[in-house]
Amino acid sequence: MADILLMLFGLSLLFASITNMLTSIVRILVIQGILLFVLTILKTNEMNMWEFAFVALETIVFKAVLIPWFIVDTINKNGIKREVEPSVSNFFSLGSMTAIFAFAFFIALWSGKSSPNVYPLHFGVAFAAILKGLFIIIANKKLITHLMGYLIMENGIFMLSLAIGSEMPHIVSLGVSLDILLSILIAVLFINKISNSFEDVDSDELSILKD
């Protein structure tokens, strides 16, 4: 069961490389949130009651509902164009995603031999998600896409923390606070305020301060 979920998660990363619409990335985020929720539920017996309730509630509320809703809301309010407008082609992005997978599984399998508590599939997918998030941030210019890249990276981190959750339950709840940081990042002021002062919400616009 868990393996199927992990593979679906991996597939969603591949899909994120070929899509051109912002809304479909949001959909990917929702799907990832639900997958992570189910993964957390599968871990029920490894955590105590309260921590489990907190983490499960957080994944479904923040990852699957609240943050995607915030993002859609921001896109609508600010009239951001719906294309992703990456600075690299889809082909390149898919190719590099494959390379990222290969690298992540290589690390996971190679190091998994030395430490028994690393499950290669889980670790590999999580690591690939972290790298994919960084890749999205680097390869895009839109600030809203940067945020989505950050979210994907954070889903990877959450997954990594689930992998070791049995040994140290409250590290998972710590990882949760990353989510809260992100929602503040979006909600508090930035996109709205920045789009009031800058014409297009694009990292090329953020170039007043430079040397």
Binding site: N117, V118, I130, I157, L178
Partner: peptide
Amino acid sequence: SIGIALAFVGVLLLIIA
């Protein structure tokens, strides 16, 4: 935030170690 997220990965890997 990206930095702090990577530091968290570091903390997780320390637990694995």
